[in-house]
């Protein structure tokens, strides 16, 4: 099956170095301290942040920094078939762990000791790249909640099919069995926090693909910044400034 046609177009009409359409919205869940909906193409993720608030389980309280908790679930209706077990299975647990550790690296936890910050991420539509979308959504939600962060964390995935490096794989391309590299960076500091890869890749090609994914992350970061600036302007308007 050709994933990249000889004319240089992928299955959905993008070129190999193009990302899908991004859309973000802040403040979707009114009850939460901060929330965001993030869409990458047909992948739609909603994130909600509660905190900083009092720790619910005293035994786990940390005296010098905030406790971060994260929960990742997929809605039953998110994929083509109805999912049987939306949370608690191994993949969800691992992704929860990954998101938590990624956000922990960028939140200034030492400013909020003895408190807890909860991040809930749910996938509403899954079409490839859910991990990246979740991290981007979590970043936006944390920003919406006003939690102090070192830098934004943005993430993007890239793959390698038909001897071409492709940016932002969708579900069809992901299930082709080729390698899938997910990268999360702190754009201002230009440091990599998250790096996951599966399937085999020779090392030099891996470097190219990782570079491509990092570029993608920077593009997402630009977009997120614009959205946040836009949002701030609106808040200013409402306050009459």
């Amino acid at each position: 099956m050709e994933y990249v046609s000889p004319e240089g177009l992928r299955l959905d009409g993008r070129r190999p170095l193009e990302m899908r359409q991004l859309r973000a919205e802040l403040g979707a869940v009114s009850r939460a301290d901060g929330s965001a909906v993030f869409e990458m193409g047909n992948t739609k993720v909603i994130a909600a942040v509660y905190g900083p608030r009092e720790v619910q389980q005293r035994s786990q309280q940390l005296n010098d920094k905030a406790l971060i908790r994260c929960e990742y679930t997929m809605a039953n209706f998110s994929t083509g078939d109805r999912m049987r077990k939306p949370k608690g299975d191994r993949r969800s647990t691992e992704i929860s762990l990954v998101i938590r550790q990624t956000m922990e690296a960028c939140i200034l936890t030492h400013l909020m000791p003895r408190s807890q910050i909860d991040i809930f991420v749910q996938v509403l539509q899954a079409d490839g790249g859910t991990r990246s979308a979740c991290i981007n959504a979590a970043t936006l939600a944390l920003a919406d909640a006003g939690i102090p962060m070192r830098d934004l964390v943005t993430s993007c995935s890239a793959g390698y099919l038909n001897s071409t490096a492709l940016l932002d794989l969708n579900y069809v391309e992901d299930s082709a069995g080729g390698p899938d590299v997910t990268v999360g960076i702190l754009p201002k500091l230009d440091k990599v926090t998250l790096l996951q890869m599966d399937a085999k890749l020779p090392m030099d090609i891996f470097e190219n693909v990782m570079q491509l994914a990092t570029e993608g992350c920077k593009a997402v970061a630009n977009y997120i910044r614009e959205v946040l600036i836009e949002n701030t302007k609106q808040l200013e308007n409402r306050r009459g400034v």
């Binding site: 500091l189 440091k191 996951q196 890869m197 891996f206």
Partner: peptide, 20 residues
């Protein structure tokens, strides 16, 4: 064979690409 089979860096401190 010089192939990378999997990489897992689940968050934590950021590092530069060159270091990776």
């Amino acid at each position: 064979n010089g192939e990378v089979c999997a990489i897992q860096k689940a968050g934590g401190e950021g590092v530069l690409q060159s270091v990776i």
